[in-house]
Write a protein that binds this DNA or RNA. Structure first.
Length: 556
RNA sequence: GGCCCCAUCGUCUAGUGGUCUAGGACACCGGCUUUUCACGCCGGCAACGGGGGUUCGAGUCCCCCUGGGGUCACCA
């Protein structure tokens, strides 16, 4: 695997955003290609028309680039083995199917779903493997065509050749699958499109893929692919099957988690806030029936049908129910304010380690250190705390220019009010918030400074604790420092600090006795960057307006 | 259930027969720093799933059990 002839690929299916598991697969492949001057190919596996999500491929490309995983061949960059969308290679697949058919390595089949189900049920009862029973004799091509003419749903199945199949895997070692386990799987669907197996094998051959590095969930497909390769006279590439990534709970990480989070919040609303299915429908912007199916009916024993709600509707519902959607896709982390450096570094460490105590690594270091031999065999859990910690390290490590650029991307992607800030102000905000973990922290720490005065919301707890407590001591302090602020000249952090410090000394007060009321007046809460710098950044007019407004609230 | 894969702190992992009274990181707990929140610094707690072998010696090799996972589609 040190050859410059190494050709690897990442082959996502456009059914949604780029998932973190897929991102790690892409990263590992990319690393492998970069370290030996090989080629990293991106191929879109869009052979399932029904599950295709409009615009998904664009999102996947965008997030791959955000992660810094540019491909050498593929969509938008081209290459000698294109097109790189399987939907544009249908003729090629059909030619191969035809060949298999003519050589007797594949045959037409037109079993109904009921018949297939019956076959499986029977096989299960007989405690043998649930596999398709090959007809004997095989239908002829003419018979298959005739069935098609009659309007039956005809597929093509591959006639799995006899013999056990042994796969040499760089991570698992030798994996042997007995012949009895291998069935005659479908290679061409009745809609005339190839299945994943056929398309994947043909493309890996035609694109000259030398190493297939993918998730372990594909391990059991590999014998099928090897069988196909032999029948077609193809090479068998090398294989490396990656361990899987799970949630901390041990469950599979997926779209479902988002639904579960919202479902819990909605359940709570129904119990405590009088929500009904109708409120769910309204919040999500769907009809009541859909809302009902999504929510399910515990008493009626009807399980929730999460798939009926689109992501957009789910997001609306989440907002209404006050639920936070868990991050699952790369895009979620991007919108949550993680640095690609952090996410990528974390993903790199999931299922692989350098062998020493190094954890924080630049991309270049990872390229040098990475090796298939050091990939872990066991599945890993996705520990968000660890990711957060690593991201924090990266925030501190990255140059201020880089941080600013990443901040702008985040502000734009997340729709933050801070997207409009000019470079100098944005840079100043970043500087004042130093020590933050994600850009979302920056938002919650400094975001309030940039909303219009009338949209500033006061946290009741903060108001009580900082302003009202002790017979309105906080308000008193505010009123007392107001003149000092009004006459401050110049309006600078140093000048303001000098004035307030002197005031505190005279009053025998602690700095905090003034700083906290100022914070609440300025931001509505108890958290902000260092107070004097914050004042300076907010500027005189805004500061004075907010302090006065806060004082007025006291009366009202 | 059949088949396949996996197994070190709560989590990610180091460990390739003796230097393992098992190392690091995150989380957690305690302390320091501090005008808030973070960041940072110091310290602490914490693991070889169980049973058999092999060997002078096993976290490291073999077997069984247990546990976890994947897969059994006209999805990829």
């Amino acid at each position: 695997m040190t050859s410059s002839a190494l050709r690897v690929r990442f082959a996502p299916s456009p059914t949604g955003y780029l998932h973190v598991g897929g991102a790690r697969t892409a990263l590992f492949n990319w690393l492998l290609a970069r370290q030996c001057g090989g080629t990293f190919i991106l191929r879109i596996e869009d052979t399932d028309q029904s599950r295709h999500v409009a615009g998904a491929e664009q999102k996947i490309l965008d997030d791959l680039r955000w992660l810094g995983l540019q491909w050498d061949e593929g969509p938008e960059v081209g290459g000698d083995c294109g097109p790189y969308f399987q939907s544009q290679r249908l003729d090629l697949y059909r030619q191969h199917v035809q060949r298999l058919l003519e050589e007797g390595n594949a045959y037409y089949a037109w079993d109904t779903p009921q018949e297939l189900e019956a076959m499986r049920a029977e096989a299960r009862k007989g405690q043998g493997p649930a596999k398709y029973r090959r007809p004997d004799p095989l239908p002829t091509i003419a018979q298959g065509l005739a069935a098609q003419q009659e309007g039956r749903a005809v597929v093509v199945r591959f006639a799995m050749p006899p013999g056990d199949i042994v796969v040499q895997d760089h991570i698992r070692g030798e994996v042997r699958v007995p012949q009895e386990e291998l069935e005659d799987f479908v290679i061409l669907k009745s809609d005339g499109w190839p299945t994943y197996h056929l398309a994947c094998v043909v493309d890996d051959e035609r694109m000259g893929i030398t190493l297939v590095c993918r998730g372990q969930d594909h391990l059991s497909n590999t014998p099928k692919h090897v069988g196909l390769q032999r029948a077609l006279g193809f090479r068998t590439p090398e294989y490396a099957h990656l361990p899987l990534i799970f949630n901390m709970s041990g469950s599979k990480m997926g779209k479902r988690d988002k639904h579960t989070a919202v479902h819990e919040a909605v359940t709570l609303k129904m119990r405590n806030a009088g929500w009904t299915t109708a409120s769910v429908a309204e919040s999500a912007g769907v009809d009541v029936e859909t809302a009902g199916r999504w929510f399910g009916d515990k008493k009626g024993g009807r399980k929730p049908e999460f798939q009926v709600l689109e992501m957009d509707a789910l997001r609306r519902l989440a907002d209404a129910a006050g639920a936070v959607l868990p991050e699952i896709d790369v895009h979620d982390f991007r919108a949550s304010g993680y640095l690609p450096e952090g996410l990528s570094n974390f993903l790199n460490l999931l299922g692989w380690s350098a062998g020493d105590d190094r954890e924080q690594m630049t991309r270049d270091e990872a390229v040098t250190a990475f090796s298939v031999e050091r990939i872990i065999k066991s599945n890993a859990k996705f520990d968000r705390e660890k990711l957060l910690a690593l991201n924090t390290q990266w925030v501190a490590a990255v140059s201020s220019d880089r941080l600013l650029a990443a901040f702008r991307d985040w502000a734009q992607v997340s729709g933050s009010a801070m997207a409009d800030l000019d470079d100098a102000t944005a840079a100043r905000v970043l500087e004042l918030c130093r020590g933050f973990r994600t850009f979302r922290d920056v938002e919650s720490k400094a975001g309030a400074l940039f909303v219009t005065d009338d949209r500033l919301v006061y946290d009741p707890g903060a108001v009580r604790k900082v302003l009202e407590k002790g017979e309105g001591r906080g308000y008193t302090m505010l009123a007392a420092v107001l003149p000092l602020l009004e006459s401050a000249d110049p309006w600078s952090a140093a000048e303001l600090e000098a004035r307030v410090t002197r005031f505190c000394e005279e009053q025998g007060a602690k700095l905090g006795d003034v700083a906290q009321p100022l914070r609440v007046a300025l931001t509505g809460g108890t958290v902000s960057p260092a107070i004097f710098e914050t004042l300076e950044l907010a500027g005189r007019p805004r500061t004075l307006a907010r302090v006065r407004r806060c004082l007025q609230r006291k009366g009202g």
